[in-house]
């Protein structure tokens, strides 16, 4: 413990900013011992979260989620496809997560970010295993036509807790999704019914009643940092770079565990830590559910 002691002596005669840059871990630990974080949050509190539905007018469903300054833009485009023979009455969801160079100084142009495919995979695993969306609802004509939902999530500002923000924006985009009206034409092909000639068309639209997806058991996640005995909820990018043990817990609205994800890290998680993280996530799920409900009811008034 030679270096921290040396920094302890220096702390009284050094400017705060210099101390923060030279001894980042020591700087954070000093805050943690007072049960506060440098951005004035208590350890277990997540950053302010906002949600705006319908941020992209050209998409069928979209949402902009912000957790602190981490910003995610999610948009869904629906296309008609022929379902596979294995599951003739099921649609399909394709999820892609993009990290363009504007989101963080770590991402360089021309070279894709290392974490982007991993988050993309985690998102599709979480959404499929939580069975939030019944793929049968995406079916149009059994064996002939079904919806393919392309969900693209763009990270505009990567300031920590990427999966949390990405999942929130994905869930919000699905709850905002308006499925376009289609009808069968004389050749047995599916055609889009545009708003103007809706009355003129004689054919009955295939999916007049099925304009919205019913979302059951919505998953919400919370990322925590484990450092010594402290658990820090919803870390910023700075915190993530200094303290490396991350745990992401995903719970659905009925408090079942969808994922407990801890990729390595020098701090070991014991049973008590697991339970503490789950408890923090339970609280967070309630908050996020309220934020989502508020955003949806706000849309309905408009």
């Amino acid at each position: 413990m030679g270096v921290p002691d040396a920094s302890g002596d220096l702390s009284s005669e050094m400017e705060v900013d210099a101390f923060r840059r030279l001894f980042p871990l020591r700087y954070f630990e000093r805050h943690l011992s007072e049960s506060i974080r440098p951005d004035a949050r208590p350890l277990g509190r997540a950053r302010d979260t906002t949600l705006a539905l319908g941020a992209v007018a050209s998409a069928h469903g979209s949402a902009l989620a912000k957790i602190g300054s981490t910003t995610m833009l999610a948009a869904i485009k629906m296309e008609v496809m022929t379902p596979s023979t294995d599951s003739p009455d099921e649609g399909c969801i394709a999820i892609d997560f993009h990290m363009p160079p504007i989101c963080s100084p770590i991402v360089r142009p021309g070279r894709p970010a290392e974490v982007a495919p991993v988050i993309s995979k985690q998102l599709s695993d979480t959404i499929s295993s939580s069975s939030m969306i019944n793929l049968k609802e995406l079916s149009l004509v059994s064996g002939k036509a079904a919806w393919m939902a392309y969900l693209d999530i763009y990270c505009l500002d990567a300031d920590g807790a990427l999966l949390d923000a990405a999942l929130l924006s994905a869930v919000a985009a699905f709850s905002h999704l308006q499925i376009p009206i289609v009808s069968l034409n004389d050749d047995g092909k599916i055609v889009l019914v545009s708003e103007e000639d809706e009355g003129a068309k004689l054919e009955e639209p295939v999916n007049k009643e099925k304009r919205k997806l019913t979302l059951s058991s919505i998953p919400f996640s919370l990322t925590c940092i484990l450092h010594k005995n402290y658990i820090l909820a919803d870390p910023t990018a700075e915190e993530e770079s200094i303290m490396e043990t991350l745990v992401t817990v995903v719970l659905d609205s009925s408090a079942r565990l969808v994922s407990f994800y801890k990729p390595g890290g020098s701090v070991l998680a014991y049973t008590s830590t697991v339970q503490d993280c789950v408890a923090l996530t339970r609280q967070r799920v309630k908050e996020l559910q309220e934020i989502l409900d508020e955003a949806i009811s706000g849309m309905e008034i408009d």
Binding site: S129, R256, S259, Y261, K262, P263, G264, A269, V278
Partner: peptide
């Protein structure tokens, strides 16, 4: 202590 945990599918705590 858990070093790594990766889960798939829904389960109760």
């Amino acid at each position: 202590g858990i070093i790594t945990s990766v889960t798939h599918g829904v389960m109760s705590v």
